[in-house]
């Protein structure tokens, strides 16, 4: 297996006494589109800032393109294209001025490519940045992130604040430009339907730790929801990997990760009149991981 594009080991970070990242471990394979999920305020942006070398972690290691993000910051940034959520640029600059200004930071800026992107995104070179629409602003930010042909692109909630059409356009551009190019894309979002169609890999960050990281397909396959009416001697604690349980009348729905044949049989044996097994979409899986109750105590007490 080739070296991962991004490798994070035991990363801790805190703002004063508030611990934000509590031992994050993550590997982003080269050439993948990596969906990074998490609710607002779980530490997504903090992790990205650490990856960019903007802040020093309390402990742990963060390698981007094989380089240490805190000691080789400038080298890393030359290879990274970054676009932040609701990116604020210099409103008083014209599009051509800001491109020229950003290009000045990169010795390998691809002017031909950036010219193509200008045409593709329908940007006017003489327009002032503050006069652009939100969609155009995102397109310009994407252009500025890609103009130097980076190996790794980090997108931090890039579609925040865009209307559905602009969001679709933006994603289309990302897929067209990056998927076929062998570029690693680290796509952070809290909008699951945005990530689902494009991501090869998914990681879910919750309360400062990665609760799940695997291929998207694997995730879809491994998480199942069972609906059953439990028999009197039911003990759900015998089943490992329960993410969520929910009771409606006599019926209970149980969401399980890493669903194996053995687990399936076990659940079926707990039902008094048959079991219904459902596949979940990414949205539901995310929900189960992030807000699922994981415990069974409340349900057992009701049975």
């Amino acid at each position: 297996m080739s070296e991962p594009a991004i490798k994070i080991e035991g990363l801790h970070f805190s703002y004063g006494k508030k611990q934000v990242l509590k031992g994050v471990n993550l590997e982003v394979p080269k050439g993948s589109i990596f969906g990074f999920l998490g609710r607002n305020g779980t530490g997504k942006t903090t992790l990205i800032k650490t990856m960019l070398g903007l802040q020093k972690p309390k402990s742990g290691k963060c390698l981007v393109g094989g380089m240490d993000s805190f000691t080789q910051t400038l080298d890393i940034r030359k290879r990274i294209g970054f676009m932040a959520e609701d990116q604020q640029m210099y409103g008083w600059m014209k599009v051509k001025q800001i491109i020229k200004w950003v290009a000045g930071f990169y010795p390998n800026w691809d002017y031909e490519f950036s010219d193509k992107l200008i045409v593709k995104f329908g940007l006017s070179l003489d327009a002032k940045v503050k006069e652009l629409s939100k969609g155009q602003n995102s397109s310009l930010a994407l252009l500025l992130a890609l103009g130097h042909r980076p190996d790794i692109v980090i997108l931090d909630d890039p579609t925040l604040g865009l209307d559905p059409i602009a969001r679709k356009d933006f994603l289309r551009h990302v897929i067209e430009l990056l998927q076929s190019d062998g570029v690693t894309v680290f796509f952070s979002s809290h909008l699951l339907y945005e990530i689902e169609p494009v991501a090869d890999y998914i990681a879910i960050l919750d309360k400062g730790v990665i609760v799940k990281s695997c291929k998207t397909e694997e995730l879809r396959e491994s998480v199942r929801r069972f609906i059953l009416t439990p028999s009197s001697n039911t003990n759900f604690s015998e089943i490992p990997g329960i993410l969520d349980t929910f009771q409606t009348g006599n019926t209970i729905s149980v969401t399980i990760e890493d669903c194996t044949e053995q687990k399936r049989e076990k659940i079926k044996s707990m039902s008094s009149n048959g079991t219904q097994e459902n596949e979940l979409n990414l949205d539901e899986i995310f929900e189960a991981y992030v807000i699922g109750n994981k415990g069974l105590e409340s349900i057992e007490s009701k049975i």
């Binding site: 400038l74 210099y90 930071f105």
Partner: peptide, 9 residues
């Protein structure tokens, strides 16, 4: 804006 220019080399 800080993140914008700091993310550049």
């Amino acid at each position: 804006r800080y993140i914008f220019w700091r993310s550049k080399p």
